[in-house]
């Protein structure tokens, strides 16, 4: 039996490193029991990343047990449905600040649409936002889901979010356990980019690994929107960490690799920018 403590998991580089450590310390185990304790804090939206890691460990027929979950963490992870995947009872979210944990096959596009509608767009308790802002947030999330669907070669795509009404923020995380940016770019172009170089390359408008068809707009759209919205993007892929926020771009390397890609998005809900284009700025000729 192995034991692992997840301590104060938020969206910091160090927290992602702990999730990578959880994977690396246990990835070679088979038919064993892995006990995990949750201490202090666990950011609900990172249930998405944890779900991906735990599924990788379950592939080797290990048994996952949560030996300790602090009452606060337990409450929120029951409300967002994560713990119901691991033998716990579902609990209603009376404050309605959770965005449910969901794991979907890449081909489950229609379920994803329903999920976004139910969990995000049609939620009456969603902070007051212009419909254009809501649409920009939904589009960003779709672009990232579709990227994972097209490029990750993952068996599942994991998603989860959280509203923070006092901070006027929505955090939403999409995780896959596929090949990652580095392998994808390097195998397409037969090169040897580092994980950070591969992420930086993919963030540039029009850069795509697709063959015979243009693309590479989705991440650029997300970058532009998040910059105006004063939000944040974090990409954790392989051993690369990339973060874009109001302080600019920061990149770092992890010790060990995440088995896939995590994309964490933070959106500001009190953004008063008008995202509606007027007919004056609209070109009549899109071709």
């Amino acid at each position: 039996m192995s034991k692992f403590n997840l301590i104060n998991i938020d969206t910091s580089f160090e927290s992602y490193q702990q999730l990578i450590n959880l994977y690396h310390e246990n990835k070679d185990r088979q038919f064993e029991t892995i006990e995990i304790s949750f201490q202090q804090w666990f950011a609900a939206n990172l249930s998405s990343a944890l779900g991906g890691v735990l599924d990788k460990l379950l592939e080797n027929l290990n048994t996952i047990r949560f030996s300790y979950i602090s009452p606060d963490i337990r409450a929120i992870m029951q409300k967002n449905d994560f713990l119901s995947h691991f033998g716990y009872q579902k609990v209603n979210d009376i404050y309605n600040t959770t965005i449910r944990y969901q794991k979907l096959k890449p081909s489950d596009g229609r379920f994803f649409h329903r999920y976004v509608l139910k969990e995000l767009l049609e939620r009456p308790e969603l902070p007051a936002m212009s419909s254009a802002l809501k649409k920009k947030i939904a589009e960003s999330i779709y672009e990232i889901f579709i990227n994972a669907q097209l490029h990750s070669e993952s068996n599942f795509i994991y998603m989860c979010g959280q509203f923070f009404p006092a901070k006027h923020t929505i955090e939403f995380t999409i995780t896959d356990t596929g090949i990652g940016f580095r392998n994808r770019v390097n195998s397409r172009f037969e090169r040897d980019l580092s994980s950070v170089q591969a992420i930086k390359w993919a963030m540039i408008d029009g850069h795509s690994t697709k063959q015979g068809i243009s693309g590479g707009i989705g991440l650029a759209i997300l970058t532009e929107f998040v910059s105006i919205n004063k939000g944040k993007i974090q990409i954790i892929s392989d051993d690369g960490f990339y973060q874009l926020d109001t302080d600019g771009v920061q990149t770092r390397l992890f010790s060990g690799s995440f088995p896939g890609t995590i994309i964490n998005m933070e959106f500001k809900t009190d953004d008063t920018t008008s995202y509606l284009l007027t007919s004056e700025t609209e070109s009549d000729e899109p071709f």
């Binding site: 589009e139 779709y142 579709i146 097209l150 015979g212 068809i213 243009s214 693309g215 989705g218 759209i221």
Partner: peptide, 11 residues
Amino acid sequence: TSAFLNTAIGQ
């Protein structure tokens, strides 16, 4: 999404 429009029209 851009992915939809890439395949519908881009190509």
